[in-house]
Amino acid sequence: MPHKDIYAHFHPDERAFVDRAWEWVERAAEFHELRRTDFLDPRQAHILFALANRHPDAAIRLDGGSPDAERRRAIIAPDYRPLDDEPIGIAVLAIDSEDRRIGELDHGDYLGAILGLGIKREKIGDLHVREDGCHALIAEEIGDFLRIHLRQAHRVEVSASLLPLEALREVKPELEELAISVASMRLDGVTSDAFRLSRAKIVDPIRAGRCRVNWKTIEDPSVQLAEGDVVSLKGFGRFKVLSVEGTSKSGRIRVRIGKFV
Score class of each variant (00 low, 15 high):
H3D: 15
I180V: 14
D19C: 03
D106F: 03
G246K: 01
N53I: 05
E227A: 12
H135Y: 09
V92Y: 02
F17E: 02
D19T: 00
G143R: 07
E157R: 15
I218T: 02
S192H: 11
E170A: 13
D96K: 13
F10L: 00
G246M: 07
A29K: 03
R35N: 11
G237K: 00
A200K: 13
H3A: 15
A113G: 11
R35C: 10
N214T: 02
F17P: 03
V158M: 03
R130G: 12
G65K: 05
L163W: 13
I60C: 00
L165M: 11
R256T: 15
L137K: 08
I114H: 13
W22K: 01
R196C: 05
P56F: 01
V213M: 05
G237E: 04
A8T: 09
K216C: 04
I180F: 02
G209I: 01
S161G: 13
E174M: 03
I95L: 08
V182F: 05
P78L: 10
D13H: 11
E14C: 03
D204P: 08
P2A: 15
E30A: 13
P42G: 10
I6E: 06
E140H: 10
L62I: 05
L93H: 09
A136M: 05
V171I: 10
L83K: 08
E245K: 14
D63W: 09
S184Y: 09
L93F: 11
I138S: 06
I202M: 14
L93E: 11
A94H: 15
I206P: 07
R36Y: 06
D106M: 08
D109K: 03
A77H: 09
Y7M: 04
R27I: 04
I88C: 06
K216G: 03
V92W: 02
K259D: 03
P87R: 07
V171E: 13
R101S: 10
R238A: 00
D5H: 13
L178D: 04
D38R: 15
V171D: 01
G237P: 05
N53S: 03
G108E: 11
R20F: 12
L40E: 04
W215F: 14
A153Q: 09
H128C: 03
P12N: 06
T217I: 15
L83Y: 10
Q224A: 12
A58V: 09
E245A: 11
C211A: 15
T191G: 02
E131W: 10
G125W: 02
L105M: 07
S181C: 06
S250A: 13
P87Y: 10
D63T: 05
G143W: 10
A200Y: 12
E170Q: 14
I119G: 03
G228V: 01
A16L: 13
V230N: 12
T191K: 04
F236A: 05
S181D: 07
V244N: 00
F260I: 00
I6N: 01
I138D: 08
P82K: 12
F10M: 01
G258L: 10
E122S: 12
R121C: 02
P2N: 07
A16T: 14
N214R: 01
G189H: 13
A167E: 14
V255T: 12
A77N: 07
D38C: 08
